[in-house]
Nucleic acid binder design. Sequence first.
DNA 1: CGTAACTTTGAACATCCTCAATGTGAGTGG
DNA 2: CCACTCACATTGAGGATGTTCAAAGTTACG
Lengths: 233, 233
Amino acid sequence: MYSELASSALLERQDDRSTPSHRADRRPERTASALGQTEFVPAGSTIFHQDDPAQHLYYVIHGSVTTSLVTEDGNRQITGFLSQGAYFGSVFCERYKASAEAVTACTLIRYCRRNWSGESPRALYKQIILDALQSELKTAEDSVQLLGRRTACAKVAAFLLYLSERAVDRGEAGNPISVPMTRYDIADYFGLTSESVSRCFTKLKRAGLISMTTPDSVTLIDRRALADGSSQI
Amino acid sequence: MYSELASSALLERQDDRSTPSHRADRRPERTASALGQTEFVPAGSTIFHQDDPAQHLYYVIHGSVTTSLVTEDGNRQITGFLSQGAYFGSVFCERYKASAEAVTACTLIRYCRRNWSGESPRALYKQIILDALQSELKTAEDSVQLLGRRTACAKVAAFLLYLSERAVDRGEAGNPISVPMTRYDIADYFGLTSESVSRCFTKLKRAGLISMTTPDSVTLIDRRALADGSSQI
DNA sequence: CGTAACTTTGAACATCCTCAATGTGAGTGG
DNA sequence: CCACTCACATTGAGGATGTTCAAAGTTACG
């Protein structure tokens, strides 16, 4: 999906031949762990707070993380759900733009930003920063597309398809999917209420588009109908 | 707002001392025009189409541009409104993720991406790519925040404040503001209908939070109330 | 002057929210 | 092991908000 052109222009090839960018077979974890610290975080804990000095950049090895902020009108706004392979931590900002919380127990890699201005393995840091920027951009762009759906059911349906796609990206099964976040989290992502989100799940289930064993395990039955905005419900 | 740390780690200082990054007094236009072509685009014209090969990157000198895509459920989704100082053109993608149209007559700078893999003024290209990434990230993050508002009026109110802030960023007056895009465009940004958007303008006007001479010139009267989600209307 | 595109307004209807109650499952302490 | 609690999920009823369909007002432009 992403082009090599831009990143090759950003990297100095002469001192960087050992870390080609955006190859299909690269292993982010290996590069990552070389320069960062592995951190285990329990479910429900806060990783950092909105407006705190942005000292670290994080990479998700395992688990699910939300970033959220409090808007001027006093509501909680979830700005992204992050899973394996995603970076978060407001790369280009002095302070974190959002708070980050672990939805499930997580394994993260934490990079200290002070190292970036240092000397040693510059090329690796450059690659991490580029990857992080792309990751944050993708997270935000995906959110815009999901949030723009017309009805609550269309939003929830598109969200489920999105979770499925990302599970496949991580090498997991695309069906059934795990929905680790609460209905309230999903509501704060879309600007809905948790009751509305719950009703959407029920409607999609009754219409035969999904089935649920538990509230956090959803089987997608009719992907076409889910993508079409679930308009016939 | 953005930190120097990340970008300094991405730039090779030894061959780049003449173009410091993210200084308050830098002039993007000057750097820009050195490597790109100036292009004048009439109002209403299409700059590029979604899914076309992404051969160029654009920078807005003057005017207003929208990026939009057609979602799987067949609706038009506007993903951003761009004005002076913004980059667009899906920097890191092989193909444009969205279509771009000129809302007003525009002056743009167009960069040909083929030049990125060439030799000569590498540092300048690096700076442009970095700026473009930041710009695209900011556009998407701003959209997420606006789209997450609960009610239609709160969305429109936050949108007007956003337009005002950006006008100030461009060195223009923050009040009254120009609203060059149509009600329909705003509706397709928020997943609303043009009628709903129009009614929100009317409500905000009747409540004394704004006043309008023409539909595209809005005076913000009570910024506090607009930011508070216009909840008392 | 007339057309076309955009904006505004109205009325009926659908959707979503609010408030309330009930259902469910994991964890706790007797 | 069994209440008990607590957080989360679900469901219902009524009210608020947004949409749909329709019509009229406004502005720019030929």
